[in-house]
């Protein structure tokens, strides 16, 4: 159901950042937040509430799943990993964004060519 909806609509930015942060390997909550900030070039810093609401939704949609737990500094850390479905969806979204970016770049080059002519 969720995947069906996602295919029809574009993916929200926090979702895209979270899935991207998990693409290379499992990460814990704070790791996802710092990684997402880095991926977005410092533009987006996920709030903790937003992260766990997204994780709750992504888990129930089967796009991410818990990987392992560990205790660091007396605090519980739960690692999450991307499922195959999640990876497929991220791949599709990446392609969609790449195609949009290519169109944008091509039209900008047309504009640039018109301006210089």
């Amino acid at each position: 159901m969720y995947i069906y909806d996602m295919k029809k609509r574009s993916m929200q930015e926090p979702t895209f950042l979270i899935l991207t942060a998990l693409a290379a390997g499992p990460q814990h909550g704070y790791g996802i937040i710092t990684d997402a900030e880095q991926i977005s070039g410092g533009v987006t810093r996920l709030q903790t509430g937003t992260l766990y609401m997204a994780l709750d939704r992504l888990r129930s949609a089967g796009l991410v799943e818990p990987d392992r737990e560990e205790v660091a500094d007396g605090r519980l850390r739960r690692y999450y990993r991307l499922t195959d479905e999640g990876a497929a969806l991220l791949g599709a979204e990446t392609e969609r964004r790449r195609a949009s970016a290519a169109v944008a770049a091509q039209r900008l080059s047309v504009r640039l060519a018109g301006g210089t002519a």
């Binding site: 814990h28 909550g29 704070y30 937040i33 766990y52 660091a72 605090r75 519980l76 739960r78």
Partner: peptide, 17 residues
């Protein structure tokens, strides 16, 4: 139900940030 699973984990993230 959400607290039972995620509270300690979220606290860890909130305090780390």
């Amino acid at each position: 139900s959400h607290r039972a699973v995620h509270r300690e984990e979220m606290l860890g993230v909130l305090l780390a940030a």
